[in-house]
Write a protein that binds this DNA or RNA. Structure first.
Lengths: 99, 99
DNA sequence: TCTTTAGTCAGATGATTGTCTAACTACTAT
DNA sequence: ATAGTAGTTAGACAATCATCTGACTAAAGA
């Protein structure tokens, strides 16, 4: 069973988060998670291959934006909302409101 | 005399802005401008060559973050604060507060 | 007019990025 | 056991990016 690693948010720089959110695909992931709560990767509709999808989740996870846990064959992921609001106040609101 | 072009903010996507702010050097530029108001490029201390500096200003300008006007040999630039606050509420605050 | 100052442009280079296919692992269900 | 489902990994590729040097332009000042 795959074990995901998540950074301590204090050690994530603003530039890293911005970088992670600089791709429309990843912004779509964050929005879906924010709107619908915890989801499996496959439950978010994206027009890319499985491998690319996996890559985007990696990037978001490395930037501290999402938390992933394993459940059976699925990887359930959610926004690290509380921590993010503390570390980068206004970030999530910005992503969700700007269209 | 160089004439700079500035995008209409309505047509700038969130991903573009995030991309522009994904470099520590450019974040430093935005912070300096926000704190000190309109500045010439050369008045912001950055550890990169003149050409690279010029490139970073290009990127920020193309993303709608800064406005540049020519004054003599200098290029005076400032944050597009009012417009940005309307188009991406919370963005500037985020950049300035996160350290 | 010559020099200095401020910045741009062109071209090169190495690193990073987004994407894919194909093969693989690990659970679930039949 | 076998097949299906969910996701990862490795490797490749083209595109983009940050950076530099060096040559250039344009305005200001002596």
């Amino acid at each position: 069973m795959k074990c995901y690693s998540h950074p301590v948010l204090r050690e994530v720089a603003l530039a890293d988060v911005m970088q992670a959110l600089s791709d429309p695909c990843r912004i779509a992931i964050v929005r879906a998670l924010a709107e619908r709560g915890e989801l499996a990767c496959s439950e978010i509709q994206l027009d890319v291959s499985k491998a690319t999808r996996s890559h985007h989740f990696d990037v978001l996870r490395a930037a501290g934006l999402i938390y992933t846990r394993t459940e059976g064959t699925k990887c359930m992921t959610s926004i690290r909302e509380t921590e993010l609001n503390r570390r980068f106040p206004g970030l999530l609101k910005l992503v969700l409101s700007a269209k």
